[in-house]
């Protein structure tokens, strides 16, 4: 008798069809978040503050109460939700542009205040939904539609290492960077997402996971090649790892 070893998470809406481009890692990240909500048994007590960008579509797929925030303000709205309803599990799902460019003040201050919120940030080194422009995480040398000859630091400055910055905030309980380039790393990513929710549940402070992801459409690469780029170009700069975990330090 065969046993079922994989099924779609119950925290996803029934018969979900993602609107992401073929091969986009957003789909994996959304599934991992849903699996974590299932495992923690918190779907019915969770509120999402959605963002702007491809990441916003998560509310069409995940079956939780959701509030759409203006660009960059998901963390402020999440703060308002959490202060009004401290008993709820509150999380954001944002892109790097939303979290670390237009919303950097909101993100850093939520971490500094130690808001009991979980933030998931997709880092794909570009603004995906608007067609692949230079963003806060665009790698040095990377060609985008607004860095046509590559990111030259004299002209464009440097990319931000988000997980490291969030780890420096005293209110942060957990900060990690993970990758979705291999199945082994997908499993690690899920563990990190789970930890980022657990620190919230235990009231320890801000939980954060930066997820290195692909944007095959705007990178103009096959999904397979896009994962090679994550390994060969992104991971040497954005090193995966756990940058802060108060449950270990204490």
């Amino acid at each position: 008798m065969a046993t079922q070893v994989f099924k779609l998470p119950e925290s996803l809406k029934g018969d979900v069809k993602y609107s992401f481009c073929p091969g986009c890692d957003h789909g994996v990240a959304v599934r991992l978040v849903a699996e974590v909500l299932d495992e923690l048994g918190v779907r019915e007590n969770t509120i999402l503050a959605a963002s702007i960008g491809c990441s916003v579509t998560i509310y069409d797929f995940i079956n939780v109460d959701s509030l759409e925030a203006p660009h960059g303000r998901a963390m402020a709205e999440a703060t308002g939700i959490k202060r009004a309803r401290p008993d709820k599990i509150v999380f954001t799902y944002q892109g790097d542009g939303d979290f670390a460019s237009i919303g950097l003040a909101e993100s850093m201050h939520a971490a500094l205040r130690g808001e009991n919120i979980t933030a998931i940030c997709i880092n794909n080194t570009t603004y995906g939904m608007t067609g692949g422009q230079l963003g806060p995480t665009t790698l040095v040398g990377q060609v985008t539609t607004t860095s046509p000859t590559g990111r030259n630091v004299d002209y464009y400055g440097y990319p931000i290492k988000i997980a490291e910055h969030i780890a420096l905030c005293d209110g942060t309980a957990f900060s990690a960077r993970v990758s979705l380039d291999t199945v082994a790393n997908i499993k690690k990513a899920k563990q990190a997402i789970k930890k980022a929710f657990e620190v919230q549940i235990h009231g320890l402070g801000f939980g954060f996971v930066e997820i290195l992801s692909t944007c095959p459409t705007n990178w103009k690469m096959s999904p397979e090649k896009a994962h090679e780029r994550v390994r060969n170009e992104m991971m040497p700069v954005f090193k995966p790892g756990i940058y802060k975990d108060v449950t270990v330090q204490n």
Binding site: A69, G80, R85
Partner: peptide, 26 residues
Amino acid sequence: RGYVSAESELAAINMTIGAVSTGVKA
């Protein structure tokens, strides 16, 4: 009750939106 010294007015109005979305007065 809840009080936050917001980092900006952008944050303050959006925190208020977040709070009232849960049905409370803010």
